[in-house]
């Protein structure tokens, strides 16, 4: 039984880790009032650049490669998100349109670059250094809990949890977070109080680029091991759903992402749990979606985003 729980939890974490990063990124962006539907594209770029980085530097960094590649994916994510920032903040483009452009551009660009770099192949080579499984020293020896949560598990997921806690602190307990939120709620008021509205919006979008890029990098380096067009297929949108589901609060956003992962892994592993064994598999396969609907209807009230979310702020008005 403990063994089964351990698989459910570790599979759920592997699946959720990229979602947590990306959903937190979306939270920062939307808290600053910029809707970022381009998360999917940012993840794609992050996944691609991390794969390339991993392939070319594995001889230098060895076992640390996936982590450095993850940061690299984040940095490229920032650069890519700047397109969205410039378009929405300075050029006053519609946020959805700009995000859509990001999503259209990323797969085309990455597949094109893959073909250029890898002799016309449609996917990259397989990376040598992956995240793999990690056991935490000391913690793994705790009876029962250690086995379930800390043995042979996904390290990036735990980093993601730490980032979520940090994000909560930054958004709700720091000066920067207060300003970020005020810009997302009422930019005029923030401006009259001397807050650099454009600067805060840039910061929000760039953080979302960083986290989204890292999310993509985690997805490719812990799951598929190579970049292709199917590496990022919808995770960015699931992350957006997690962000809304989690009401733009980093901790609940994280919980929502883990919930998605958990219901997914339950569907896969359910047939091995004794009391679920006799259930026809169609129920288990439908379970993730049914659970999501139930939770949304029963426990989550109205999901209220930042008030000025999606509106272009024009300073002179």
């Amino acid at each position: 039984m403990v063994g089964t729980l351990a698989i459910i939890v570790s599979s759920a974490l592997v699946y959720s880790a990229p979602l947590i990063f990306t959903a937190l990124g979306g939270t920062f962006s939307e808290r600053s009032g910029i809707v970022n539907v381009g998360l999917e594209g940012i993840m794609t770029i992050g996944a691609f650049s991390a794969t390339v980085f991993n392939l070319f530097t594995v001889n230098i960094f060895g076992a640390l490669t996936p982590w450095i590649a993850m940061l690299f994916g984040g940095v490229i994510g920032i650069l890519f998100s700047l397109i969205h920032a410039v378009a929405t903040v300075n050029l006053r483009a519609d946020h959805i349109v700009s995000g859509t452009v990001i999503n259209l551009m990323a797969p085309g660009l990455t597949v094109f670059l893959t073909k250029m770099i890898f002799d016309g192949h449609g996917q990259t080579d397989l990376i040598k250094a992956r995240f793999g499984k990690t056991s935490f020293p000391i913690l793994k020896d705790i009876p029962v809990l250690g086995e379930i949560f800390f043995k042979d598990t996904s390290a990036p997921a735990y980093v993601a949890v730490l980032v979520a806690i940090l994000a909560y602190y930054v958004i709700f307990k720091t000066k920067f977070g207060l300003r970020l939120r005020s810009v997302g709620e009422h930019p005029q008021a923030a401006d009259t109080l001397g807050i650099n509205v454009y600067g805060m919006k840039y910061a929000g979008v760039m953080i979302s680029g960083f986290l989204g890029g890292m999310g993509g990098a985690v997805a490719v380096q812990s799951i598929s091991g190579q970049f292709s067009i199917s590496t990022i297929a919808g995770q960015g949108f699931i992350s957006m759903a997690a962000m809304i589901f989690g009401k733009w609060n980093p901790l609940t956003v994280m919980a929502a992402a883990i919930f998605f992962g958990l219901s997914q892994s339950l569907a896969v592993i359910g047939s091995q749990i004794d009391f679920l064994k006799n259930l026809p598999s169609v129920y288990l396969q439908a379970a993730p979606y049914v659970l999501t609907v139930l939770v949304l209807v029963l426990f989550i009230g109205k999901s209220q985003g930042p008030k000025a979310n999606g509106q272009t702020y024009i300073k002179s008005k």
Binding site: V35, V37, E40, G41, I96, G99, T100, N103, L104, A106, P107, G108, V111, I229, A233, G234, G236, F237, M240, A241, I244, S303, G305, G310
Partner: peptide, 21 residues
């Protein structure tokens, strides 16, 4: 309302992206 619109557009984008590639 606004959120559902957002997700809908997102899915549309995904479809467009795939077909463009």
């Amino acid at each position: 309302m606004k959120t559902s619109k957002k997700i809908g557009l997102g899915l549309l984008t995904l479809g467009l992206a795939v077909s463009l590639v």
